[in-house]
């Protein structure tokens, strides 16, 4: 155990090592940022925008959540214990499922299983491909890589899944007559649902492809910005950022496709009939 601690404490992300100076933020910095939000909320109150309360509440929530995450991550990184990494990632996954389901509107109950499965599969791919194949840290579970990468992936897939699921069920409702006509003409449930599946995956992936295309020109994405601010080599940071963006885009598409393949049946009966109210059935062994 001692040797693990020694190796992990000795290792900072490759990019950060490069050149040196970083500028920490003190408590006044946090207060100034919070004051900006308070002023904005005040403006919103004056202009009757009705968004001030949400803004303020969300900002406070973000501050607490981020500080908590920073504290926990610091602890996990220092301990260098793979089990703590696993527990932390599990907690993030559970929260991701909960947030996905609360954000997705008009979806049937009981989707936690499929959402968790598609998140776990993409997350495992992310860790195995990006961490172990591209970056190859020592030890292999290096918390300062695995945890932030998982967080970035989950952040993206959660919104893609929430948008995709909402759009799918909305589209199936809108296309009711079309679905019935297709079924009457002999379409399978997959053929009848396909247009809704395609449109929901496209919509879910829109922000991801947009951010991929605009990165470097309009925006300096968060991870690259972070490494540069922390004193890392900008070119190295750019390489990191590309690997992350590309893999997140690919895996978000995969997560959205997986979830659609798992849930489109909920709109149909076992006899391939359109269901008014989608139902998640426990899969029977014989079908």
């Amino acid at each position: 155990m001692t040797s693990t601690i020694l190796t992990t404490t000795g290792m900072y992300p490759v990019a950060v090592q490069a050149s040196g100076t970083s500028y920490p933020i003190d408590i006044w910095g946090l207060l100034i940022a919070l004051t900006m939000v308070i002023v904005a909320s005040g403006l919103s109150w004056l202009m009757h925008l009705g968004i001030g309360k949400t803004l303020l509440w969300s900002a406070c929530r973000a501050l607490v959540q981020l500080c908590a995450m920073g504290f926990i991550m610091g602890y996990v990184i220092k301990s260098g214990n793979p089990w703590l990494v696993l527990i932390l990632i599990t907690g993030m996954l559970v929260a991701a499922v909960q947030i996905t389901l609360s954000r997705a509107k008009g979806v049937p109950k009981g989707l936690a299983g499929p959402v968790l499965l598609s998140l776990v599969i993409t997350m495992l791919l992310m860790i195995s491909m990006v961490t172990e194949l591209v970056i190859r840290p020592h030890p292999w579970y290096a918390p300062q890589l695995v945890v932030p990468l998982t967080g970035m992936l989950l952040g993206n897939t959660v919104s893609a899944l929430a948008v995709g699921l909402s759009r799918f069920y909305e589209s199936m409702k809108e296309r009711r007559n079309e679905v019935d006509t297709l079924l009457a003409l002999g379409a399978t449930r997959w053929e009848a649902a396909r247009p809704s599946i395609i449109s929901s995956i496209r919509l879910g992936l829109l922000p991801t492809t947009a951010s991929l295309a605009s990165s470097g020109i309009v925006t300096i994405p968060g991870m690259m910005a972070g490494q540069v601010i922390a004193g890392g080599d900008p070119f190295n940071a750019a390489k990191y950022q590309f690997v992350i963006l590309a893999s997140i885009a690919a895996l978000t598409l995969l997560a959205d496709t997986l979830i659609m393949v798992m849930v489109y049946r909920t709109c149909f009966t076992a006899d391939d009939q359109y269901r008014d109210k989608p139902v998640v059935e426990h899969r029977k062994r014989n079908r």
């Binding site: 007559n177 019935d180 006509t181 079924l183 009457a184 003409l185 002999g186 379409a187 399978t188 006899d271 391939d272 009939q273």
Partner: peptide
């Protein structure tokens, strides 16, 4: 199968 049946027994909405 439902599809084979509906191919023979066609509902026209």
């Amino acid at each position: 199968s439902p599809q084979q049946w509906r191919r023979m027994v066609a509902y026209l909405p």
